[in-house]
Every structure is written in C-alpha cells, then in structure tokens.
C-alpha cells in the first residue's frame, strides 16, 4: 500500500471514496491514469472540480443543476400541469430516458424513514408544498420506490396533494415485462392480482 503522504497514495485514498471502489480497484484506476492517460486524468480532475463548485439544487424540482432553475423546469415543451415525485435523480433519469412522461418532476433526494430520523422536514417537503400551492399543477404522480419507506412517502405526499384538491396517482405495480409468473415472489403476485385490469 502506498503511504498517504505521496501523491499516488492520496489519489488511491480519494478514489476509494467512490461507491463500489475498494482498495484494489482504486489502485488499478490510479495506475492506469498515471501510466496511460494523463490527459484523461486532468480532464477528470477538472470535471470533478467544476461539478463540485457549480452544481446546486434546482429551486423548483430539487434536482441537480447548474442554474437556479433547471432545463426541465424551464422547458415550454413540457406539460406544466403534471408533476412526478421521485426519490432520486437516478430515478428521474430512468423515467426521462424511457420517454414515457413529459411533465415536470420533484426530486425528494430520499424517502421518509422515521426510524432513521428522516421525517418530512429533513426531506424538504415544504418546498414541494410551495410548488403545489402555486396552483398550476393538476395531477401529481407518485413514483417513489415500492419499498415500505417508499410507500409511506407516497402516502404522506398523497395526503398533502389531496388536501389541496389536486389529483394524486400512484404508479402501477405487478409483473415486470418479460417476467414469468413461476419466478415471481408472492408479494408481487398479490399486488399484480389486486391491481388487475379489464382486457
């Protein structure tokens, strides 16, 4: 192991901060960049510096962006009467890449987890409420995860939405496309049956 006092040692230590990177991968990354790709290393350093300095939360949807209001929230091509509530920027990206939705988003940056001390205040739900109070939104789609915490969050937000006489909907759950019933767990099957629809 390189001592942390050397530049290489420090680089390896810093790379280990990345999720999924252990000591071995960190060493491989560091040596690769130093041996074969110094330019790439400089670009990476610059990109990291820039992102760390410039990226903020959008004042409306709470997603990461560089301006006060992000491109999605400003886009005139999007339906400004629809709002989709998601847990993370990664969820937002998945939905947007799927191209199934053309409204606005709100990113909670987590979910309610009372046992970890994460309540409505810590999630910044008051900002979502302010958005709802503007009156332009006609429907809120609750697209939090299908975990117990995600369900609790959806219920909590749903109550706030309904209290303002705005339509609140929850994404459907059940058998995934390409899924075979034989391999699907019992809880998912139960949901799939209770949420069955006319053909």
């Amino acid at each position: 192991m390189m001592p942390e006092s050397t530049a290489v040692g420090r680089l390896i230590q810093c790379l280990r901060k990345l999720p999924g990177v252990g000591p071995k991968s960190a060493k491989r990354m560091a040596f690769h960049m130093l041996e074969r790709d110094r330019d790439g290393a400089r670009q990476l350093a610059q990109a990291l510096q820039q992102a760390a300095d410039c990226v903020v939360h959008c004042a409306r949807c709470n997603n990461f962006c560089e301006d006060r209001i992000c491109g999605v929230c400003q886009s005139p091509r999007r339906d400004h009467s629809l709002l989709c509530v998601v847990e993370s920027p990664a969820d937002l990206q998945s939905l947007d890449e799927a191209g199934v939705y053309n409204g606005l988003y709100f990113v909670l940056m987590g979910h309610l987890s009372p046992l970890d001390g994460i309540g409505p205040e810590e999630l910044g739900i008051d900002r979502l409420e302010a958005l709802l109070d503007e009156g332009a939104i006609k429907e809120v789609i609750l697209a939090t995860n299908l975990t117990v915490e995600g369900e609790a969050t959806a219920h909590y937000v749903g109550e706030l939405v309904r209290a303002r006489n705005i339509r609140a909907t929850r994404i459907a759950y059940g058998v995934p496309v390409g899924g075979e019933l034989e391999y699907i767990d019992r809880n998912t099957l139960t949901r799939a049956f209770s949420g069955r629809s006319e053909v």
Partner: peptide, 15 residues
C-alpha cells in the same frame, strides 16, 4: 420520530 409523522399529516391537511 414516527410519532412526528402522524402529527404532521394531521396538521398539514385540511380534510
């Protein structure tokens, strides 16, 4: 913490 959740739901909604 979970008790806080109840209180806020009641407090925030008018229905």
């Amino acid at each position: 913490h979970s008790r806080k959740l109840f209180r806020e739901v009641k407090y925030n909604s008018s229905t």
